[in-house]
Write a protein that binds this DNA or RNA. Structure first.
Length: 584
RNA sequence: GCGCCCGUAGCUCAGCUGGAUAGAGCAGCGGACUUCUAAUCCGCAGGUCGCAGGUUCGAGUCCUGCCGGGCGCACCA
């Protein structure tokens, strides 16, 4: 909910009135009118572009229309002063009482301040991580994991019904490779010398455990079988063990999925055929021959008639194959079925959080979702760019072969889950992210996690100090919620309230745009505003939070301090980061 | 060759779906600790928003074309 919405409805009634008696046209379209907090403090507390947006409809110059509107706004209770600026903005300063009322809202809402119903109860499925079960999660998986998880929380906090989902790619060639790799490790566990892991198989030492487990359970019996017999056994054991590890890693990151969907199950239950039947009925499938990609013809290219999805009808660049040359379905086909399945389970908005290497996959999947849902489903794909792990400014070189591979678990163990979660959100998802394992544990301004946690710890420290210095003071949330806030009139105090009051709009905007990283920047701003006010108390003792001789003033300020910690806690809550009340 | 992403201060990056004189942090320079935690704060300096057009009251943001960097381009997942 935007704090300025009510000013907009005031404007609309003003327009209605002016339309009846004031000589303006009736039924003006005010949909593009905004009321917002200007970036520039000198532009006041609220600015509106109303005069500029409406000038054409009204047939007046923006500044002339602004003059008319200005008179109406000046009469409003919450408006202390108003002026016309620039090309026709109306800048208003609001009364201290208005801001004090906003502060009261923070205290009344507590840690759910900023939660809203802007989502209107829409059902959203957020699919994230979805790493192939062929090895442990690495750092880049962690980014997608956090982005998806926090996006899900953000949507849940803003009136969406959210499903958190992981798609297990347990069908296809890659897990067969996994099964064969595990078989080698099985032989190794039985004492055979397997030498170098052949090219094309997974060399990772993490499969040794799988080999041990297979040996322990099956003894020598697998050796007597054909591959067609042992492969399902080694494959399934490997998948189960890998997924168990993935789940542990997710738990370590504080992530709890609602649903794990299996690709194999999608296929086995005939959902691929069902989804393709829908496409077929819509006339989106045909038999055809693709042109080779221009400028880069693969060596083994040969024209071939295959079953194609008419993706070009939905904005993709080429039509996409649904069946391989051997007649089996492509991964794309089962993925269409999977997305159709998510849609038919009740989510009209689907979000996929994918890694950078899936960039080329976006258009075709969106095309497919549009086609298979007859335009009713909407798919947003968030591509997470790479995470560059660093140590004290030096990039960490990673190579699976050389064994210098940094897993997500390594990172969590080194810097902690809260740090990982926060840092992953300090860049927008489509920009690469430098993650310096040393810098993020520094206790300094450079480290955004620390900076925000420190601000929060300070708020709690102030309230602890106050309770000690002034034992008669009521410092519980309930008490602070009823405090007389009228003593809060210093511009620096009002400024902090303005920042805090921006939280609900920030949450709603970030949720609707599917951009959780915005909250990290906002929290940094809140911390900055608070640290600034805290330091003002040094230069101007009358601004200190605790004034032992003035109980009314002190409690009002404690309410402001408490509101600050509530907003930080609300933000960290959505991030899934634990707020620290003390740092030492 | 085609598609997607990126290009903003010396460096790392924001810029809230088109708003005003483009903002932070770091680095640089200058200040503030008998004090509610100085692990913090305040100030100064720093810009052709890659280039050129276009759309309109108004463009870092939208459109077109270039330049430069990254990624991906049947029958892998």
């Amino acid at each position: 909910m935007n704090n300025f919405d009510y000013l907009k409805s005031e404007l609309e009634s003003v327009l209605g009135w002016l339309g009846e008696d004031g000589g303006l046209p009736k039924d003006l379209d005010a949909s593009r009118v905004t009321f917002e907090l200007p970036r520039e403090a000198s532009h006041g507390d609220v600015a509106t572009n109303a005069a500029m947006v409406l000038s054409k409809q009204v047939g007046m110059a923006p500044r002339d229309l602004a003059q008319i509107l200005l008179t109406e706004f000046e009469a409003h209770d919450a408006v202390r002063s108003a002026e016309i600026a620039g090309p026709g903005f109306i800048n208003m300063r609001l009364t201290d009482a208005f801001w004090q009322a906003r502060l009261a809202e923070v205290l009344a809402a507590g840690e759910t301040y900023g939660h809203s119903g802007v989502g209107g109860g829409a059902t959203v499925n957020v699919e994230y991580v979805s790493a192939n079960p062929t090895g442990p999660l690495h750092a880049a998986h962690g980014r997608g994991a956090v982005v998806g998880d926090v996006l899900a929380s953000l949507l849940a906090a803003t009136g969406h019904k959210v499903t958190r989902e992981y798609y297990v790619n347990d069908a296809g060639a890659q897990v067969d490779v996994l099964g064969r790799s595990a078989y080698l490790r099985y032989l190794e566990a039985l004492g055979e010398d397997i030498g170098e892991i052949p090219e094309g198989l997974y060399p990772g030492a993490y499969l040794k455990d799988v080999g041990q487990a297979l040996a322990a359970e099956h003894g020598e019996s697998l050796k007597a079988m054909d591959q067609s017999e042992w492969l399902p056994v080694t494959k399934n054991t490997a998948i189960d063990m890998m997924m168990a590890e993935v789940r542990e890693d997710l738990t370590a990151l504080g992530i709890e999925m609602d649903v794990f969907s299996s690709e194999r199950a999608i296929v086995a239950e005939g959902k691929v055929e069902a989804a393709l039947a829908v496409l077929e009925a819509g006339g989106h499938i045909y038999q055809g021959v693709l042109e080779p990609p221009k400028g880069k013809t693969p060596d083994d290219w040969e024209p071939r008639e295959q079953t194609l999805f008419r993706a070009t009808a939905f904005g993709d660049d080429v039509d996409r194959p649904l069946k391989k040359s051997d007649g089996s379905y492509t991964y794309f086909a089962s993925d269409i079925a999977y997305h159709y399945d998510k849609f038919t389970r009740g989510s009209d908005t689907l979000i996929d959080v994918l890694g950078a290497d899936h960039g080329g996959y976006v258009k075709r999947m969106q095309a497919a979702v549009t086609a298979v849902t007859d335009g009713k489903g909407r798919l947003d794909i968030k591509i997470c760019q790479l995470v560059k792990l660093m140590k004290a400014g030096v990039p960490i070189k990673m190579s699976k072969r050389a064994g210098t591979f940094v897993t997500l678990r390594d990172v969590i163990d080194q810097v902690g889950r809260d740090v990982v979660r926060f840092i992953m959100l300090t860049r927008k998802n489509d920009a690469t992210l430098d993650f310096d394992l040393e810098k993020v544990t520094e206790e300094s301004r450079d480290n955004p996690v620390w900076y925000v946690q420190y601000a929060n710890a300070r708020t709690h420290s102030v309230i602890r100090q106050a309770a000690e210095a002034m034992p008669d003071l009521e410092t519980s949330d309930a008490a602070l919620g009823k405090v007389d806030l009228s003593p809060l009139t210093d511009p620096a105090e009002i400024e902090l309230i303005r920042v805090l009051a921006g939280w609900p709009g920030m949450v709603a905007g970030a949720a609707l745009a599917h951009e959780p990283h915005r909250l990290a920047y906002y929290l940094n701003d809140v911390a900055g505003a608070f640290h600034g006010l805290w330091n003002k108390g040094k230069e101007s003792p009358e601004l200190r939070f605790i004034r032992e001789d003035e109980a009314v003033l002190t409690t009002a300020r404690l309410a402001l301090v408490r509101a600050t910690s509530l907003v930080i806690a609300a933000g960290l809550g959505i991030f899934g980061v634990r707020a620290r009340e003390e740092l030492r």
